[in-house]
Design a protein around this nucleic acid. Structure first.
Lengths: 209, 209, 209, 209
DNA sequence: AATGAATGAGGATTCATTCAT
DNA sequence: CATGAATGAATCCTCATTCAT
């Protein structure tokens, strides 16, 4: 997700490496603090302390604390949207697509737990912060993608007819993303296992045959 | 909401009835603000403004802002626990019990959306606030209740054997309580309908027969 | 200036008197500090110290340091404009009017030296501060008043024909308002004396007959 | 203004010529910024930006931001004093001398508008900045020169007897130097014209014959 | 019960300045 | 000469809380 792709290894040394790394380091630190303590509860001093610099020095890299939040969320939302869009293109059939989306979501939670937690936990804040409307907007775009899959599956008779896609989507979404609060990236329960568990339950139902 | 309506002067004297009402009024206002803006973002002045008094005057009714949060959460958690315990006693069979628990949860969301949202959204805060450990504790007690039902159902062959109760519980919990973020108490979709929808999906699965 | 109009005299004791005074006191203190140290160099702590309260307590009375500056300047500019307009109405003939304007200006400097000094010294700041455009605007309105008098006097043959009103106005204005930097309100040289001196020099010229 | 123009590489080595130029360039930039935004409001970053370098790099040329201000003002005050002294020597008769001083002042405003504006606008700051007492001192020396001329002219019967030289000096000074705020060095109104206008008004008075 | 003035402990941000590279 | 990361002190402002009236 933070990709360090095709930059010629040789040229790497020159301008960016240190500064780019520093920014990324700081963002990682900030994301973790934001997600565990909450954005407002996290002081710039907390971030500075965790990074080993003074809080004022953060402003050499970022315009404000809010700018850090913005960068974290923008990365997440952008990556999320394109990842989902790609899955829709790559798969055939609503069931396969939905499986792909769900597996992808759990993978993202595994890779960027802090950013996702931030997005999950700070909804109240984000709704009121000017300049963060793109979060809700991308959220909506993503909802459209998932909804289309659910609606198509119902249309095609793959998904049950008595379940309303709008409600179904929300219920699925909350199960999936809510897992960020209990999933441990380095625990014994891998994200693929959790995904498989959820898919089994979602598709087959809780009841024994 | 800001109302200072005409309460007969005579009735004003009785200390308890009025003050009890006043406390409840203030808590309702606070819960709404806390849940929409976030606890930290809500200032005592916000609450005072909404109640038509000055922020300092809140301290005649409550010891602190935190005390208001405490009272809101204590009411919620207590009610939740006893409601769930009662359902366990009143019902027979894991399936009926689980149905009861889920219907109850959606009903609570309908009745106390703000308190539930508070509990959902402020997890990061609550984990760090001293004096609020009871929230996590009651949370745990409740988890035990639900887990017991799921485990018993699996044992009895009512629920699928390949689904691990611990994971299942979390997935169900997040779907159910997560709905507080989108459920509209005065919308056209009643809480019973949502509960029914979820139960259908949970028990029968998403796939068409 | 802060108007306490039609409130029944009897009830007056209740709310305003203290707070109105406090605001005025604080503004007086702020104006003096602003004008002697400069607006930016004056810290809210300076103001608080001078007022005997903590800097944070200023925010009980004013929304910001800038709001204090605003109130000071708004009072000055408003008073200035209406005073000049009144003089134009009350006098007849360009010479008498100009005399009136000049005497009034020196009187204002005597009465509100700090506010005038502020206006004189912080032109660079005021030009860049958003929300303070009214200062330049009122300044312009006032310039129009003075210019009209000068132009009329030249037209009527009272003032010399070889002096361009635009330039003349600026030269007069700077002499008059510039005196705020050296005039001492409690010195032996009264503002009437200074006005008379300037009028003598302005009308008759520096050369001996 | 941001120019990094093509200076022959060969010439580059000589430490003084290039660096002297660079210093002068930077001072010019600083003077302009100081005079338009105010000294305090101008950040070293502003200066660096305008010069095309980083703020930290300014410290290769100057010891501090204050040192830049100092150099600007020292140049101005020194030049001013010697120019006035020379005029006193070169002219005969109070009237001719005063004319010379005034014409010179307007010429200086034309040549160094930013430095003069700085001196005019930052009086509050300069009075409190330690190490800048020379500004007030030279100011005083200059005042003595002008005062002597005025007093001599009055003594000799060239200037009116009813005008007190001390007050007269201040009124003249403010008109003259105040023009820095509105005079446009590249406008259609040349500084000689303005000087002539002022002299006509000052000597002959505003009233028509 | 409520007011309104004040406290005091932060918290985000700015900025001149330093220094290793 | 210039960079860019960092410092550290100061500044404006916020806000829960107290208390005399």
């Amino acid at each position: 997700m933070v990709s360090t792709e095709s930059v010629p290894r040789s040229k790497r040394r020159a301008t960016s490496p240190k500064s780019v790394n520093r920014r990324a380091q700081l963002l990682t630190i900030a994301a973790e603090l934001f997600s565990t303590r909450g954005y407002v509860q996290t002081t710039t001093r907390d971030i500075g302390d965790a990074a080993g610099i003074l809080s004022g020095s953060l402003y050499h890299h970022f315009g404000s604390k809010e700018a850090m939040l913005d960068e974290i969320l923008r990365d997440l939302m952008g990556g999320l949207h394109s990842a989902f869009a790609e899955i829709v293109e790559r798969t055939t059939g609503p069931r396969a697509t939905l499986e792909g989306l769900i597996r992808c979501a759990f993978a993202v939670i595994h890779d960027s737990p802090h950013a996702v937690a931030l997005y999950q936990n700070e909804s109240a804040l984000l709704a009121h912060l000017p300049g963060f409307s793109y979060v809700a907007e991308t959220s909506n775009d993503i909802a459209v993608i998932w909804l289309d899959v659910l609606a198509a599956g119902r249309q095609e008779g793959v998904f049950r007819d008595d379940l309303e896609p709008g409600v179904t989507y929300r219920l699925i979404r909350d199960s999936v993303w809510g897992s960020v609060r209990w999933y441990k990236p380095d625990g014994r329960l891998g994200h693929e296992v959790v995904a498989e568990h959820y898919l089994a339950m979602l598709f087959g139902g809780l009841l024994a045959a």
